[in-house]
């Protein structure tokens, strides 16, 4: 990804109708937009918002799963979980890099997260009280994330698309490890099976909420679709996720906590799909607004890590400065 330094002084665009039409024509021709290309201010803003939220989600997402690294029940599970949480950190890093090509710095983005100004995926404000939550997150949360992310590999903004290709490649093991974990619980003792079902009950609805508000209520969808930042609507992706996931649950003897879940032949242009119950959007918005069980804990944990690490970052910079001076003096 390109640096901030590559963005010239000419990024201020004259947003005449001709300019906007020419930009839209490039998008319609499936041309990729690169960091130093002229772009409408709103396109830039939308991307910064999307990419940074995505990056923050990866970073905060390290915490609920990280909660179980030291307690993973076998060494095999422990290394898989540690590698997975590490990957989330890597994905956050790739995405911050992509956002930085648009003229914001990592420091700015970090401050926005730490001051609670930035949004991140609300799913990570739910707690992970049991080991089965690690399975549920891998299977459902990463599963939902993949639905969202695969189309982003074709996003019109080059650095975001490239970061997403890398993310998707790495993420492919995440969902499998989660589902495998759930499978071994579902095949285990009564206690283990109950633990798996309980986790599914708690994570199913929040997973569906991950796709965002219904298309009719989403303020950002239309323009993002026109700019080919997004390729599918929230509801389309949610439906795909439900259709893919319900059979996976059935296969291992678990059931979705939704009495209204039924197969509907006529859905998806006659290919069939699942009808499902009403999502509790009030819960969604409450958690988005900061009232979830873990919102404050998550931000406090990130703030503590950042504050505790300040002296380390300063020391590294001070040492680099000393070395430069020594080199200059030599």
């Amino acid at each position: 990804m390109y640096s901030q330094g590559l963005i010239g002084a000419n990024t201020e665009t004259q947003e005449t109708p001709e300019f906007l039409a020419a930009f839209q024509a490039r998008i319609d021709a499936e041309e990729k937009i690169e960091p130093n290309d002229p772009m409408p201010a709103a396109y830039r803003k939308t991307l910064i918002r999307m990419i940074s939220q995505h990056a923050h989600s990866e970073i905060v997402g390290m915490l609920p799963e990280g909660n179980w690294i030291t307690r993973a029940p076998t060494l095999r599970r422990k290394v898989a979980l540690l590698a997975k949480v590490q990957d989330e950190g890597g994905h956050g890093l790739y995405l911050y890099s992509a956002a930085e090509t648009l003229g914001v710095s990592r420091e700015q983005l970090t401050q926005e997260l730490l001051t609670g100004k930035a949004k991140y995926s609300s799913i990570f404000n739910y707690p992970t009280p049991t080991w089965a939550d690690i399975g549920a997150i891998g299977w459902l949360v990463d599963g939902a994330a993949i639905m969202n992310q695969v189309p982003l590999c074709r996003c019109s903004y080059g650095p975001y698309a490239r970061a997403m290709i890398r993310v998707c490649k790495e993420e492919s093991f995440h969902q499998r490890q989660g589902y495998e974990l759930m499978t071994s619980l579902a095949e285990g003792t009564e206690e283990q099976k109950a633990m798996a079902q309980d986790a599914l009950n708690r994570w199913w609805w929040p997973s569906l909420m991950m796709f965002g508000p219904s298309d009719s209520d989403s303020q950002h969808s239309d323009q993002s679709m026109a700019w080919k930042i997004k390729r599918f609507t929230n509801d389309e992706l949610r439906q795909k996720f439900v259709d893919a996931t319900v059979p996976q649950a059935e296969l291992i003897g678990l059931s979705m906590p939704d009495e209204k879940l039924t197969w509907n032949e006529s859905k998806n242009n006659g290919q069939g799909g699942y009808d499902f119950g009403e999502i509790d959007w009030d819960e969604f918005w409450q958690v988005v607004k900061g009232h979830g069980m873990m919102n404050k804990d998550r931000i406090n944990a990130k703030r503590k890590a950042w504050d505790d690490g300040a002296w380390v970052r300063q020391a590294a910079l001070a040492h680099a400065e000393k070395q430069n001076q020594r080199k200059a003096a030599a």
Partner: peptide
């Protein structure tokens, strides 16, 4: 008001015989 840690661009050569290719960036003090 902390001083910013510089940004670096990273290039990786997948194997001998190929070019180094830009893969992303990161922050490091030196």
């Amino acid at each position: 008001d902390e001083k910013m840690i510089p940004l670096w661009e990273v290039f990786i050569r997948p194997r001998n015989g190929l070019n180094h290719k830009h893969v992303g960036s990161l922050h490091a003090a030196d």
